[in-house]
Computed example of a mutant assay.
Amino acid sequence: MTKIRLTGYIDVPAARLAMVQAALPTHIALTRDEVGCLEFDVTEDETHPGRYLVSELFASRADFDAHQARSTDSPWAAVTAGIPRHYTIEEVSA
């Protein structure tokens, strides 16, 4: 089965950093509880203030797509609206 891996980063503007930091733990917990979520990490880059490194692994394309659909209507989406993401999405053989 083909898994889906997302890697990259989001650069959060200083003016929005507190709101993003406050929303992040809930976003991580909800995502890790999703069916098919094998890995989900969002960590602050120690060398680039406001940059968060993102790494996700989902068991299938359907699981990844379900995550994208859920998070589109989430408080996380509202807090991070308009902040550009720099992600790479790839298929990974099991």
Results as ranks from 00 to 15, higher is better:
40 F>E: 06
68 Q>E: 13
30 L>W: 04
15 A>C: 10
77 A>D: 01
8 G>A: 10
70 R>F: 09
8 G>L: 12
7 T>Y: 09
3 K>D: 08
20 V>Y: 09
66 A>V: 01
24 L>N: 05
44 E>C: 08
33 D>M: 12
17 L>D: 04
53 L>N: 13
93 S>C: 10
10 I>W: 04
46 E>N: 12
29 A>G: 05
88 T>S: 15
40 F>H: 06
23 A>L: 00
12 V>R: 04
38 L>C: 10
51 R>F: 07
10 I>L: 12
24 L>A: 07
12 V>C: 11
10 I>V: 15
14 A>N: 05
46 E>G: 09
54 V>T: 08
12 V>I: 15
22 A>V: 06
24 L>I: 05
74 S>V: 00
19 M>H: 12
30 L>M: 13
16 R>W: 08
52 Y>T: 07
36 G>R: 01
3 K>I: 05
10 I>Y: 02
11 D>S: 11
86 H>M: 10
17 L>I: 12
90 E>T: 14
90 E>S: 14
86 H>G: 08
71 S>T: 10
26 T>V: 13
24 L>R: 03
94 A>M: 10
23 A>M: 02
91 E>H: 08
87 Y>M: 14
85 R>P: 00
14 A>V: 12
15 A>S: 15
40 F>M: 03
92 V>Q: 07
15 A>W: 02
55 S>R: 14
59 A>W: 00
72 T>L: 12
27 H>F: 09
31 T>M: 02
88 T>E: 15
29 A>D: 09
12 V>M: 11
5 R>L: 14
63 D>C: 13
7 T>D: 15
44 E>I: 07
84 P>C: 07
15 A>Y: 02
50 G>R: 06
67 H>N: 07
89 I>H: 05
59 A>H: 07
86 H>P: 07
9 Y>D: 12
56 E>S: 06
23 A>H: 04
81 A>I: 00
83 I>T: 07
24 L>F: 07
11 D>Q: 15
6 L>Q: 10
37 C>P: 01
46 E>M: 14
64 F>P: 04
48 H>C: 12
56 E>L: 03
72 T>P: 01
37 C>H: 00
76 W>A: 00
43 T>Y: 06
9 Y>A: 15
72 T>V: 00
19 M>Q: 15
20 V>W: 02
23 A>C: 08
11 D>M: 13
26 T>R: 11
58 F>W: 10
51 R>V: 08
90 E>M: 11
69 A>Y: 00
56 E>Q: 09
62 A>V: 11
30 L>P: 00
24 L>K: 01
92 V>M: 10
64 F>S: 03
16 R>M: 09
51 R>L: 04
81 A>M: 03
86 H>W: 09
43 T>V: 15
39 E>V: 11
2 T>K: 12
34 E>H: 01
40 F>D: 00
61 R>P: 03
73 D>K: 03
53 L>M: 11
48 H>R: 15
10 I>M: 13
83 I>K: 02
35 V>Y: 14
89 I>W: 04
50 G>K: 07
54 V>G: 07
40 F>V: 01
45 D>K: 07
18 A>V: 09
9 Y>P: 02
58 F>T: 03
78 A>S: 10
84 P>W: 02
25 P>T: 08
61 R>E: 14
18 A>K: 11
33 D>C: 11
56 E>N: 02
11 D>G: 07
26 T>K: 11
6 L>Y: 05
16 R>K: 10
8 G>M: 08
93 S>W: 02
92 V>G: 11
93 S>Q: 13
